[in-house]
Structures are given as C-alpha cells and as structure tokens.
C-alpha cells in the first residue's frame, strides 16, 4: 500500500480493498464479463467517431471511461444499451456481446436491451411529473408486478434519497435540488431492476458534496449492479472505479479526421499509479487533455 501511494500520480485515496479486488478483476475469466466488445466502430455519417474498441466489462464492478473531450466516451457508452439508435446518422459495427448475445444482432429488440441496461445522463432529466410518478414510470411501462408503493420506496432507499423526499412524493420532481434530481434519476433507473447502469458524467452538473454522495451511492450499488461510468474527473475515476479505460483522439491531419481509440484498459490502481502507456500518464498527470 505504502509503495503504491508513493507512486500515485494523482492525489487520491483509494478504497481499502482496491488492490486485491481490482487485481482479481484483471484476472477474471471471460464468463465473468457482462459485456465483451469486439472490434466496435461507430460512425456518424462518414465521420469515424470511435475505432476498433475491444474490451471486457466485469460484472458487479465499476468501470470508468476517461479521456479528453471528443474522444468518443459518450458515443461508446451509448453502444452498451443501443441508445445510439436514436441518432439516425449513427452506425455501429463490430459486436457488443452482452451475456453471450450480440446486442447488435438483427433479432435483438433495443427496448428489451434498455430495460436491462439502464442509463443515467449528464444533466438530471426528471420527467415533469411527481417524484412518485417519475420512479413508477419504468416499472409501469415494463409491466413489473408488485406493490408500486413498495417499489418506489425501495428504489428511493437504494438511491439514498428516501429520507429526503418521503414527505413530498407527490410534488413535482423539478422542485428537487440538482443533486437530488440526479439521485432521483438513479432511483428511476434502479426501479426497473436492471442488470447494468450506465452513467454519462453523472456528477458534472453537481457541486462537490452532491458528487460525493453519488460516488458513495455508486460504491454501494456495485454490490448488485454492474456500473459503467464516463467521467472527466480523474479523482472520481480513481476513487470509485475498479477498472479504468483511457481513450484518446487520434488526429489524422491529412484526412482531417479525429477518431477515438482505446489506449489502455486496466485496473484503476495501475492506470492511476503505473500506467504502461505514456499517453495515459500524460493525461492523468494533467500534461495533456
């Protein structure tokens, strides 16, 4: 531990169990992966946004995607639940294998995919409805059986929001603070009992205290869920993630193209203390990006 701390390039406190656990993860067999990406490419029209990504996302761990703006983190994240389908120009090739099935196979229904793989967005996006109706929306549209009041309460408890909102469930969700709204969005995602939660910069619109609460929440949630998070905050990635993927933009001046590539994917411990690629080191020490 001591030795590691000395080598740490950014000042962070790593979770106690991090070394062992992420060491574990690095050696996990493939069947412990929730996702296996094989040669994933994403184009927006003729623009090649992300090139040839191959990586494994371990189950019940937090995987962080980091890298400079425009390197395609959001684009890649949106491949995990076929959210890119909503952008008419986006084309995904390669395979995103989720529990043995390729999400981009023609027989796959994107709606079924998103029901299992939830998403939390950069800006809190509550529906203009009551807190209760926000949480109940997912279970209702998915036909989840059970007592709705209990479902709502459980989701809000899991998102560490229950005590703050239990007396105003019928009030419009816009009345909540930004941090509360974001935790409500997490609760809303949890309420459909997904398998994976994708988070695209969930704390970037929040103050440090609200961000810290979300980080705590993520650490609690990984007991039950697989989490993939995009973040610009290096400390955050180092604090919460078990594995970290560093992406960068490859600029081809001749063809004036900017393509996102995966540089290095390893345990957070290694990425933040002893990265093997000089570009990773430059980025996390703040010399680039």
């Amino acid at each position: 531990m001591n030795q590691l701390t000395e080598q740490t390039l950014v000042t962070v406190t790593l979770p106690e169990s991090s070394p062992e656990r992420s060491g574990d993860a690095a050696n996990r067999a493939d069947d412990d992966s929730v996702f296996s990406l094989r040669g994933v490419n994403v184009h927006y029209g003729s623009f090649h946004a992300v090139r040839d990504i191959t990586m494994e996302i371990p189950r019940r761990q937090i995987t962080a995607l980091i890298g400079p703006s425009g390197c395609g983190k959001s684009t890649l994240l949106r491949c995990f639940n076929r959210m890119n389908d909503l952008i008419t120009t986006a084309k995904v090739s390669g395979s995103v294998i989720y529990n043995g099935e390729n999400l981009y196979d023609s027989y796959v229904d994107a709606v079924e995919v998103r029901r299992r793989i939830g998403m939390v967005f950069q800006k809190p996006n509550p529906f203009p409805k009551s807190i209760y109706d926000n949480i109940a929306f997912g279970p209702k549209v998915n036909g989840i059986k059970g007592n709705m009041d209990d479902l709502v309460e459980q989701a809000l408890r899991d998102a560490a929001l229950w005590d703050e909102v239990k007396d105003k469930l019928k009030q419009n969700a816009y009345g909540l603070s930004g941090g509360q709204q974001q935790r409500m969005c997490i609760a809303r995602a949890i309420a459909v009992q997904p398998d994976v939660i994708l988070m695209d910069e969930p704390c970037s619109a929040l103050d440090p205290i609200a961000s810290a609460r979300i980080e705590d929440l993520m650490t609690e949630l990984k007991a039950q869920y697989t989490i993939v998070i995009v973040t610009h905050n290096m400390q955050q990635a180092a604090r919460v993630s078990d594995r970290t993927a560093f992406f960068t933009v490859e600029v081809d001046e001749a063809r004036s193209s900017r393509t996102g590539i995966l540089v290095e994917f390893d345990t957070a411990q290694r990425i933040f203390t002893n990265p093997s690629d000089s570009r990773t080191e430059a980025y996390i020490t703040g010399r680039f990006g």
């Binding site: 909503l86 709606v111 079924e112 800006k123 996006n125 929306f137 997912g138 998915n142």
Partner: peptide, 27 residues
C-alpha cells in the same frame, strides 16, 4: 420537448408509442 426527456424514457425501456403518449404529450 427536450430530447433529454425522450432519452430518459427510452433509457427505461419504453417504446416509441409509450414515450410519445406518456412522456412527450404530457410535457
């Protein structure tokens, strides 16, 4: 109606008709 609301709905596994009628229309 902002795209973010539609994304929230699709992200929860709602279909297009559900998103249109139960999210976009009320908003």
């Amino acid at each position: 109606v902002p795209l973010a609301l539609r994304e929230a709905s699709y992200g929860l596994g709602a279909r297009k008709i559900t998103t249109s009628v139960r999210v976009v229309l009320p908003a």
